[in-house]
């Protein structure tokens, strides 16, 4: 699928395996491919086929061939190679896969990759400032806001979403902001402290 916003993207046609083979075969015997696409109506990606999309992730454009059924989480981890977002439950019930889609927190496991085309996607990798941790990540390290760390990238992204919308959250706002992220180690008290610390660091507080 192609849509309007991104310059470096496909030609707007889905790449179907079947279609690809067909045109190769026809090309080999030199027969011109007749125009069989209906003149009107939206383009349908057939079941089981891949389609070419371009995802805008952490400020860079990543072309990818994806099946429509693939989640954004799967594409981030397996196709693009960004593994900060974690699969916990795979069904929107834990928060380990939280990423930002146009600054809004989303479960990447419940988001189809094709639906994220054209949006600005941010993962924990995108919060790095060069080789240094960004302020939200730094706050989690400083406040020891984890034990095993598996939920941490999701907690960090939920915090990032909260602070982008609300730079000075109340304790109640903080609890609400990370209420979509489970921590099986039960590090919640320090996670709340991490969000407070992140708010300080982001507003130029002492580090």
């Amino acid at each position: 699928m192609s849509s309007s916003k991104e310059p470096p993207r496909g030609d707007g046609l889905s790449v179907s395996r079947r279609g690809f083979l067909t045109s190769m075969g026809l090309g080999a015997v030199g027969v011109a491919l007749p125009e069989i696409t209906p003149a009107t109506g939206p383009e349908i990606v057939p079941a089981g086929d891949v389609t070419r999309i371009a995802l805008r992730i952490n400020g860079r454009t990543h072309p990818a061939l994806v099946e429509p059924r693939w989640s954004l989480l799967h594409v981030l981890r397996a196709e693009v190679g960004l593994t900060a977002a974690k699969e916990g439950c795979g069904r929107g019930e834990c928060g380990a896969c939280t990423v930002l889609v146009d600054d809004q927190p989303r479960y990447a496991c419940l988001t189809l990759a094709v639906e994220a085309e054209g949006a600005e996607i941010t993962t924990a990798e995108g919060l790095m400032e060069g080789e240094e941790l960004g302020p939200t990540q730094q706050a989690f390290a400083e406040t020891d806001a984890f034990q095993c760390g598996y939920c941490t990238p999701g907690q960090v992204m939920a915090t990032e979403a909260l602070l982008r919308a609300n730079p000075h959250p109340s304790p109640e706002d903080i609890r609400g902001g990370v209420s979509g992220n489970l921590c099986r180690c039960g590090a919640y008290e320090n996670i709340f402290r991490a969000v407070e610390r992140a708010a300080e660091l982001r507003s130029g507080g002492a580090s």
């Binding site: 699928m1 109506g41 939206p42 349908i44 429509p68 059924r69 693939w70 799967h74």
Partner: peptide, 16 residues
């Protein structure tokens, strides 16, 4: 993984 499905993104109510 979810079973394969066809996917379409219409750009008008009529097409949808």
């Amino acid at each position: 993984m979810i079973k394969s499905f066809a996917y379409v993104r219409p750009t008008s109510v009529d097409d949808a």
